[in-house]
Design a protein around this nucleic acid. Structure first.
Length: 228
DNA sequence: GACCAGGCACATC
DNA sequence: GATGTGCATGGT
């Protein structure tokens, strides 16, 4: 814990903003989340778990073609039927189950209408979402930020990889510790959190492959400017 | 054919 | 609490 406190102190707000500014200047706005409606974002958040977004798009196209991409339809559809439709996204049986769990939660809490959640405090919503089996921290935070417009920073594999490779966090840093770095050092700005996460994903996809260490990562190119 | 992709729950030690 | 494993398709 002490170690992370030290790391935390080494991540001043200026540094985080500088990284953001450089990535934004280089790559521009990412126009996230790539879903047409808040409900589509919710569905995509489950489907994209450990999965290439291209495969998620195929699954979402299947749902649209079957006119199943509505809260009501997904609430009534049987898990086996849902699994068949989302097959291209991989892990289709477990994702069908997880999606049903989340849709059940929606009907229990807001009659399937996301807009009805607007008066629930963010911290309470987050705890409720984390209580749904199949919804972990990244999925919950993706729903909160991109579907419900709450100022929550989404941490993912790319965020961890990019920051740890630049020695900004420990390789073994945990989700909540990384989230705290962003949320404590940046203003609670929905648009900023949206764009920052999307830029990190873009950077990770393009330049930070898992192995070997990424010599072409743009943060490496720019690190002398950022950390001078 | 191997590796990878916008995780998560559960078993085991 | 830390670590290992199952879940699965489709692109490169």
């Amino acid at each position: 814990m002490l170690f992370f406190a030290i790391i935390f102190m080494r991540m001043p707000v200026e540094q985080l903003k500088k990284i953001y500014d450089l990535l934004y200047a280089r790559f521009g706005p990412q126009h996230w989340w790539p879903g047409e409606t808040p409900f589509e974002v919710v569905v995509g958040a489950i489907l994209t778990q450990n999965t290439n977004w291209g495969n998620v798009e195929k699954a979402i196209a299947n749902l649209k073609k079957a006119k199943a991409l509505t809260p009501e339809k997904l609430h009534s559809i049987k898990p086996a039927g849902l699994a068949k439709l989302i097959r291209p996204a991989g892990y289709y049986n477990i994702k069908a189950s997880r999606l049903k769990n989340l849709i059940d939660w929606l009907f229990k809490n807001c009659a399937g209408k996301l807009a009805k959640l607007k008066n629930i405090p963010t911290y309470q919503l987050r705890e409720e979402l984390l209580g749904v089996s199949g919804v972990g921290p990244e999925t919950a935070d993706s729903v909160l930020l991109y579907a419900l417009n709450r100022p929550v920073f989404v941490v993912d594999a790319y965020t961890k990889r990019i920051l740890s490779r630049h020695h900004l966090i420990d390789f073994n840093a945990e989700y909540e510790q990384i989230r705290a770095i962003f949320e404590s050092n940046l203003p609670a700005d929905i648009k900023l959190f949206n764009e920052y996460h999307a830029l990190l994903v873009h950077t990770g996809k393009e330049f930070c492959k898992p192995t070997p260490r990424c010599p072409d990562c743009p943060l490496n190119h720019l690190s002398h400017t950022i950390f001078a």
